[in-house]
């Protein structure tokens, strides 16, 4: 599907936030100078066409309880597939990417507690014989990211 100027204005406006009020679509539609039912219909269409990935509250996974850690390994090319299978088999591995670097395998561990992060990283290290470097988040900087639609 193609999107028009109104759709783009909606995407830009709604990346900034959505009000918590009884009739929030009416409020946003008013700001954009369109009708409430038009706004809702356009959102439905863009969600259907997967131009919108998600619309709603974004939760901070750490604030909800739980621990997360970015980890990296330098996996020799000949062992890559075997190590990938071992790493991916762990349910604590949320995502895993191959990256263009000497440290070529980057994954995120998600567990209920910080102690479990260390335990899982140690397990992976033992199972694969490859050092697991852990890069926990020390500080998060303001997220200004917007996709200009």
């Amino acid at each position: 599907m193609s999107i028009d100027a109104t759709d783009r204005a909606i995407l830009n406006r709604l990346q900034e936030g959505f009000p918590i009020s009884p009739a929030p679509f009416a409020a946003v539609a008013g700001e954009l100078g369109i009708a409430e039912d038009d706004l809702i219909a356009r959102l439905e269409r863009m969600r259907e066409a997967r131009i919108i990935t998600r619309f709603g509250p974004f939760f901070d996974a750490e604030a909800m309880g739980g621990a997360f850690c970015l980890c990296a390994m330098a996996v020799p090319p000949e062992k890559f597939d075997a190590v990938m299978t071992q790493v991916n088999a762990r349910p604590e591995v949320a995502h895993n990417y191959e990256r263009s670097h000497h440290l070529n395998m980057w994954f995120v561990l998600a567990t209920e507690s910080k102690d479990e992060i260390t335990a899982v990283a140690d397990d992976i290290e033992r199972a694969t014989g490859i050092r697991v470097l852990c890069f926990p988040k020390l500080r998060e900087f303001f997220i200004g990211f917007r996709v200009a639609a």
Binding site: G17, L43, I52, R54, F55, P57, F59, D60, A63, V147
Partner: peptide
């Protein structure tokens, strides 16, 4: 706990 209530556009589609 809620970072924001908003739309997440599909980067790839845009």
């Amino acid at each position: 706990v809620i970072r924001r209530i908003a739309v997440a556009p599909n980067h790839y589609a845009l």
